[in-house]
Design a protein around this nucleic acid. Structure first.
Lengths: 211, 211
DNA sequence: GAATCTATTGACCATTAGGTCAGATTGTTA
DNA sequence: TAACAATCTGACCTAATGGTCAATAGATTC
């Protein structure tokens, strides 16, 4: 609130410009890679002169980091949360539903992240790595608890989480390939429901949580 | 044979150099992307002068296509084949085993392919696209046959194939992330067996082919 | 062993891309 | 409305990169 007092039209302009730039940059980085995306191409896509981009972000490296950070925050928010009270069935359902929705709603975030990881995650700080590891361990502990409690089959929780990651993200990252296979031009809203249904069905049964 | 007659030491040199270049190029293209990989960096990695690279491959674009083609051929060979006599259980087992083995044995091929697809497959010719579609349709028809025959649950075959693609390739493409999660430096030979076992178990049960 | 391919490589060039900067323009505030 | 700050932008510079070329060395063939 106190901050908003200070924000006049200018801060608004700043925020608007930055957002426009970040969006354009994300597209270019995905399409061309870090080196392949030129400041000029980002500028063109954002409809701004090149020097303006460099005015808001000191340099290309800086801009890339900003895009990546935005992406990771989005991933973090969209992943949903599961708690011990859920039990394995609800937990898996929630988890899959959240990740599929993410994949179809913000495919660019997933693609950006995927490219970074494939290239060996050169820009992901140690912090991000440790955070992910902690996250997975924490959730794995929940599943292990349910396994020990006889609420689900004896399945390796970490492998299960990786399976859910991979099968859901794939629809974002490999969009081009899936559309090719299906001989379609783009996804339809119904696809979210269909994919969620399919994956939930197979994986729940795979975990012995459905006959 | 007749061809071999003509191959003396020179053809050997040619083959050896080209292979060395292709390997170096593949690494660089994965690490830096198409634009980011410089001919000089590829030359350095291959231990050859830059001009020598351009002697064997007219230009960078050309070299990229050569690497991509080699990659696709490898994918094609390593995917294994399933036939109607197999029945759904054996087919899924064979399919998963082949793809997991591929992912752990030639992760670079998978990564190269993944980057290309994420970026919208700009270099993949219409031919490669059509080929993939045909391949999937053909295999899907087998699964559909088994479904109609009551040999397995009523599951969408195309979604099943996509699930196997995604869950197996993930171990190659997201190697860096999985190692991070597991807090390990690199994969071990046993991992192939463990992953194959896990995925086969879940997916077979998911398809109602295992109690 | 001369003639003819094939392979190798340093020097060179044109283009492009990241980044700077100074000056113009617009917004803010008192 | 004057002074100040934030935004915008064309012109410019430098380094790096893809690609060419001509000259040299090595193989092959007859």
């Amino acid at each position: 609130m106190a901050e908003n007092k200070k924000q006049g039209k200018q801060s608004n302009i700043r925020a608007k410009s930055q957002e426009k730039i970040l969006d354009a940059a994300q597209q270019e980085f995905i399409l061309q890679g870090f080196k392949g995306a030129t400041v000029q191409s980002i500028a063109d896509r954002a409809g701004l002169p090149k020097a303006n981009i460099l005015y808001y972000f000191k340099n290309k490296e800086n801009l890339y980091h900003a895009v990546l950070e935005q992406t990771l925050n989005m991933w973090d928010e969209g992943i949903g949360d599961i708690v011990i009270e859920d039990g394995p069935k609800i937990a898996i359902e929630k988890f899959i539903a959240a990740k599929v929705k993410m994949s179809f709603t913000y495919p660019s975030a997933s693609k950006m992240h995927a490219m970074e990881v494939i290239q060996g995650a050169p820009h992901l700080k140690e912090f991000a790595r440790t955070y992910l590891r902690q996250w997975v361990r924490e959730k794995a502990k929940l599943f292990q608890h349910w396994v020990d409690n006889g609420e689900m089959k004896d399945i390796d929780p970490v492998s299960l989480i990786i399976l859910i990651f991979s099968s859901t993200q794939h629809y974002a990252d490999f969009e081009a390939q899936i559309l090719t296979i299906m001989n379609r031009a783009e996804y339809e809203p119904e696809d979210i429901e269909q994919v969620t249904q399919f994956l939930t069905d197979i994986i729940l049964r795979g975990c012995g949580l459905k006959k």
